[in-house]
Simulated scan of single mutants.
Amino acid sequence: MSAAEDYRRRNARRLALVVAGVLVLAFSVALDVSIGPGNLTLADVLNTLIDPQSASPQLSVIVWSLRLPIALMALTVGAMLGLSGAGMQTILANPLADPFTLGISAAATIGASVAIVFGWSVLPGAGPFIVTANAFVFALGASLVLFFMTRLRGVSAETMILVGIALLFTCNAITALLQYHSSEVQLTQIVFWTLGSLARASWIKVAIAAGLVGLALPYFLMRGWALTALRLGDERAESLGVRVDRLRLEILVATSLLAAVSVSFVGSIGFIGLVGPHIARLLVGEDQRFFLPVAAITSATLLSLASSLSKAINPGVIYPIGIITALIGVPFFFSLVMSIRSRAV
């Protein structure tokens, strides 16, 4: 077999994996919509989605107004976190990089906590919007800290990870201080935010998140060749004509925006941006043309399945999605750390 034939066969296999991933994701979304009070079957859900006019008014309201926005919120937020984690791992050359470990999620939690403690969350009409907007501002602020750190001379990828860890602990300490000075009602709201929840999903938020994914993924794919070259090392990438510093800044801005918006919508959800890209890397390798879309698909599928699991553990009770993702992600995180340590030894 010639090298060209082998290359085409590998690409065909990767493309097949992308198609298979889309089908699995579609099934997981339908499953997410079907699980919950009401004992809906997959057939009921599919019929209601395909032909809403044939469904009963009650079934149509359950599927289209209550459950589908939450299921699509899980899909779009998962895709945003997956793209963000994949981009951060590539530009920082660190397998442990994602919005959660870099402190962006914790910064968003501070923003939400400030809005809750100062009473902005109970303002008539604008309360929920102010909490979301404040979380976004603080998350974007943390992203800007990371952004400007990359412009300092001599700052390496390892230093960026240390800065992210410092941000994470600082933000957690500030959040704890706000919790200490909050009332019982406010404390409940803050804890609810820190655990992450899809319950605040709406069609407007789904549209914004889908629009960001629709803009970010083509942009990432346009830079796919340069990102693939960056995986070979800075010197090798520069020898191939890649402007490494500029590329890192561009991708950091894009990934930070995705992370900030996702966290401001659903709260702090950890490990999805870490686990999803690693599964994608195992499936399709480092070719960013396939790695990036598969990272988005696998992360979206993981969060969609986590959403289904949060409703299926105890029928009638919906557990915060952040608890489920932590239960999935922590064992994977430990295995990843141990594998890195074994390779280093």
Rank of each mutant, 00 (worst) to 15 (best):
A295R: 06
A237M: 10
G164V: 04
I251F: 03
L59G: 02
L292H: 13
I174Y: 01
T188F: 03
G141W: 02
V24A: 15
A79V: 07
T109I: 02
F136V: 06
E158L: 05
I321W: 05
N314R: 13
L68A: 10
L123G: 08
C171K: 07
N39I: 01
G164C: 03
Q186G: 10
F169I: 02
G87K: 04
G322H: 01
V191D: 04
V29I: 15
S339W: 08
A201K: 12
V213M: 00
Q89Y: 13
L178D: 00
M73W: 13
G82K: 03
A344Q: 13
F192T: 10
Y180I: 08
A55L: 09
I130W: 02
A312Q: 11
A93E: 07
A254L: 15
L40R: 13
N172M: 12
A280C: 11
S60T: 03
Y180V: 07
A295Q: 03
F138M: 07
A300G: 14
S256R: 01
T188M: 08
I70K: 13
G85W: 15
L292S: 15
A300K: 07
V263R: 09
L258S: 08
T76I: 08
G125D: 11
K205C: 04
G276M: 08
L17A: 13
L83Q: 05
L215E: 03
A176C: 01
A135D: 00
A79M: 12
I269A: 11
M1C: 03
V63E: 05
N94R: 13
F333D: 01
N134Y: 09
P95D: 08
L247S: 09
I297M: 06
G322M: 10
L283R: 14
F129L: 13
G141L: 13
Y319P: 07
A107N: 01
S262L: 02
L249F: 01
A210H: 07
A43G: 05
A142Q: 02
M338F: 12
L31G: 10
P277K: 14
V284S: 09
L212N: 03
F333V: 05
V122W: 02
I116F: 06
S264T: 11
E235Q: 12
S304C: 12
V137K: 05
F147I: 04
K311I: 00
N314L: 15
A306S: 15
L102N: 12
L195G: 05
F291M: 15
I104M: 00
L162C: 00
G211T: 12
S105Y: 04
Q53C: 01
L72V: 06
R10D: 14
T132D: 05
V185P: 01
